[in-house]
Design a binder for these strands. Structure first.
Lengths: 230, 230
DNA sequence: GATATTTGTCACGAATATGTCATATTAAGG
DNA sequence: CCTTAATATGACATATTCGTGACAAATATC
């Protein structure tokens, strides 16, 4: 599965190098010479990964990263930062704002590819055992409990898995087949429409705490869990 | 449950990086620039986990790890070692002396956090000999007695161990095989459904003090002891 | 060695969850 | 508006999971 990788780097030679590498790794590089260009490009395509140089003219990488991480739409996009060798200070700052990994310049193509691969492998946020809370709805995997506003939400196994998936991948539209893959498991053969029914059951159950509108229908595409009230 | 994590690393920049990461993961870093300092700090606080650099001035990491693992007081503390990239020799030696995991430098923050979490999760709440009381139900490991509301609850050996485990790991779901592992011991070959039967016997016995609902069924997953009513 | 207790397994009914369909409702485009 | 496609909903047959009582084997107790 080829991924769109946004490369934000002002030095053309290095950018060329990066793009070449990415192409060879079977992915699709999107080049931006500055943060401003990057922001424009992102209006068209939301990339799967961002390679971000830390030293940029104008708005610097740090600021850009912080901005990305504070926006719900983009906060889940992994960022790999490029730092000068031994620039530990940058690394620290980068981690502060939530960069996911870093590569020191001069980088070896091999290392870069390895890290890209590693990060992309985790593209779907791993379902951890940490409790998740969105909009007052709380899901705790270890106790297998869902609560919202002091009320206990009673869910069947499938609905629980479904909600769990939605909460770990919030703000993102999932098609029915994606949901079948991720929630049901890829070996089953069930109708797409079945998802609808489970969505309804989930919404129904969520009504006890007033969260029935949390899962939204995106006509023609699928479903999405979002905190923003449309 | 925040954990105290001792970071033994002589390079200040990297130490800073590690400490920041640990803080962001919700834990409490304790910094030591050398093994000697670490040993002093450990007189005050016994950490829950040790991040140990392998290349240290003075006494090296290997020696320190071996020392920790040979002392009864500290042998159970998990150790994650930091090795230089591809230094397979160190990895082998490290695992030999009982390190629990390793991370190669330069490490990705995400990977580090994942490993920290994994190691800490393995730290199962130890079954102590202290009496436990939940919801008016009291279990005393030393006298092997269970009482609830003045009534004595009569339990068979297996049911006692089962209840003991549930009470030390309350509010979380345990699958049948987890229970078989933890309560029966991991070498036995018993049917999953046997757990059901023992759960019923336990519930039955707990009925004399009105605690029959303390252990709840989580359909499709397992069982859970919880004070909160469904 | 006789008796009581504990333990694992099974069979079967009850409770619950699941997938599918038929039909109602809703949104989008002309 | 009206048409059409997409989604929501209720109902239902089926499948799955759980609770329960019974029972025989193993173990402990006297």
């Amino acid at each position: 599965m080829p991924a769109n990788i946004l490369v934000v780097e002002d030095e053309p030679a290095i950018q060329e190098l990066l793009a070449l590498n990415i192409t060879q790794a079977g992915h699709n590089p999107i080049r931006a010479l500055s943060v401003e260009i990057a922001q424009n490009l992102m209006r068209e395509t939301i990339p799967d990964l961002i390679l971000l140089d830390w030293m940029l003219p104008g708005m610097n990488g740090l600021e850009f990263a912080r901005k990305l991480k504070s926006d719900n739409l983009t906060k889940t996009i992994p960022i790999i930062m490029l730092t000068a060798r031994g620039d530990e200070y940058d690394k620290v700052r980068g981690l502060e704002v939530g960069a996911d990994d870093y590569v020191t310049k001069p980088f070896s193509p091999r290392e870069l590819n390895a890290r890209i691969k590693a990060v992309l492998r985790r593209r779907a946020p791993q379902m951890t055992d940490d409790p998740i809370e969105i909009n007052g709805l709380r899901l705790d995997p270890t106790s297998h409990r869902v609560t919202g506003h002091q009320k206990i939400v009673d869910l069947g196994p499938t609905e629980f898995r479904l909600l769990h998936f939605f909460m770990t991948n919030a703000e993102r539209v999932h098609t029915r087949s994606q949901l079948l893959d991720k929630v049901w498991g890829d070996r089953v053969f069930v109708e797409d429409r079945t998802v609808d029914v489970h969505i309804r059951r989930l919404r129904n159950a969520l009504a006890v705490s007033g969260h029935q509108d949390l899962i939204q229908t995106v006509r023609g595409s699928g479903y999405r869990l979002s905190e923003q009230h449309t």
